[in-house]
């Protein structure tokens, strides 16, 4: 069944690539703006042998990773603190509901004013966008703590910190994982956007350069690279999730004792 699915998927992809090759060649679209698959592949090969490409990729991944780490740590710490401190939840709820929907890209002017085209500009946007993803999931997760489990822990004399560690954290972990996965995707989007718009070094800036210098196949090749990055990040996050949550209903199979 899985083999058959994989085969179908491969067929679909092949058909899509073939279409991308055929349509421009048949003159159905302007080849100048929609180069055929083979030319994009050529451009991609060219990119891969260019040191500047790897530097740009490294820059993008650096911004993505640092931003994500900051956002995840801050989101987890803030989420747990807000949830376990009496009244803090009510006190912060409306502020969070106000700040969360602000699109990160709306902060681009602020980022430019503060940091110009430095990495910190990218970080500001990445962190702002991914922080909420994590925070909101953590807060959902904490609400999911079973009162019976909590009372059990209290009756055995577990203090606040021990309960956070042994009850609250494992309960919230599936939510945290979802939050991290969403945040990882959003962080990539924001990293590329920031580079593209602000001109901070990275894949986004390279796409902008390709566009202005009319290197259309290269531009597509870079877009493909960002897509592949997103795919890898999602697959990676899911693998980590499965490993960490082997005990969880959404993952666990029927295992004999």
């Amino acid at each position: 069944m899985r083999g058959a699915n994989a085969l179908l998927g491969a067929c679909g992809l092949a058909a899509f690539l073939a279409l991308g090759e055929a349509v421009p060649r048949l003159g159905l679209v302007d080849e100048e703006y929609f180069p055929p698959t083979s030319r994009i592949a050529d451009a991609l090969a060219g990119e891969l042998s260019d040191d500047a490409f790897w530097t740009a990729l490294g820059d993008t991944l650096t911004g993505w990773a640092i931003g994500l780490v900051i956002a995840v740590s801050a989101g987890i710490v803030a989420g747990v603190l807000i949830s376990v401190t009496p009244y803090l939840r009510e006190a912060t709820a409306s502020t969070i509901e106000f700040l969360r929907p602000i699109p990160s890209v709306a902060l681009i002017p602020l980022a430019v004013l503060l940091y110009g085209t430095e990495l910190r500009s990218v970080l500001l946007l990445v962190v702002y966008a991914s922080f909420w993803q994590v925070l909101v999931q953590v807060m959902y997760g904490v609400q999911d703590v079973d009162p019976v489990a909590e009372e059990t822990a209290r009756s055995y004399g577990l203090g606040t910190w021990a309960r956070v560690r042994h009850v609250l954290w494992p309960t919230a972990l599936p939510y945290v994982m979802t939050g991290v996965r969403l945040a990882a995707a959003v962080a990539l989007i924001l990293a590329v956007t920031a580079e593209l718009v602000i001109g901070a070094p990275g894949l986004g800036a390279r796409i902008a350069v390709a566009q202005t210098s009319q290197a259309v196949p290269e531009m597509y090749a870079l877009v493909v690279v960002t897509g592949l990055l997103g795919l890898l990040i999602n697959v990676g996050a899911r693998t980590v999730e499965r490993r960490a949550l082997a005990w969880h209903q959404s993952v666990r199979g029927e295992v004999a004792v």
Binding site: D146, V148, A149, T152, H166, V167, P170, L173, W247, H248, Q249
Partner: peptide, 8 residues
């Protein structure tokens, strides 16, 4: 069922 911790 709810008093035991499923992650342990």
């Amino acid at each position: 069922g709810r008093s035991l911790f499923p992650w342990m």
